[in-house]
């Protein structure tokens, strides 16, 4: 329990420090930057720092974070996600071409952004539970 609390504090601290550094760097490099862009950039940096720190702590604790099986599952899940996204893009192109619906660039990109994450996560879960023998 104390170990988990310590882990959470370290992960949060890493996220806060990384966000602060990223925001200071952004302000210094681009003084006229839109506040919303800086907020989104800060959130992305915080999430990345939290994930990297958590993975580092897990590796330190468990010894092995990824092995040949998990790497294989990861690669296969990425391939499935890529193909499904390719199909989605083809569908969006046809929908737009046949004027079945108006496809805005922003909504199409947002859809693909979440679709790729969702299909990767689902494929990874499915492949992890299935085995390959």
């Amino acid at each position: 329990m104390v170990g988990n609390l310590k882990k959470i504090i370290i992960v949060l601290a890493a996220a806060v420090v990384a966000t602060a550094i990223a925001n200071v760097a952004l302000v210094l490099a681009l003084p006229n930057l839109d506040k919303s862009v800086a907020t989104v950039a800060g959130a992305v940096v915080a999430a990345m720092a939290a994930v990297f720190t958590l993975r580092y702590l897990q590796r330190k604790e468990d010894g092995v974070l990824q092995d040949e099986r998990t790497k294989k599952v990861h690669n296969a899940a990425m391939a499935y996600s890529w193909w499904l996204t390719y199909v989605l893009i083809a569908i969006l192109l046809w929908v737009n071409y046949l004027k079945l619906a108006k496809v805005e660039l922003e909504s199409a990109l947002s859809l693909m952004f979440f679709f790729m994450v969702a299909t990767y996560t689902l494929a990874k879960w499915w492949l992890s539970s299935r085995g390959d023998a």
Partner: peptide
């Protein structure tokens, strides 16, 4: 066994259940 072979415990579970074909190295 997982620590000695450098893999995750789940991989040993999958191997023992015959659900995963290991590489020649493993």
């Amino acid at each position: 066994l997982a620590k000695k072979t450098g893999v995750r415990r789940e991989t040993i579970v999958f191997l023992e259940q015959g659900k995963y074909n290991p590489s020649l190295e493993l």
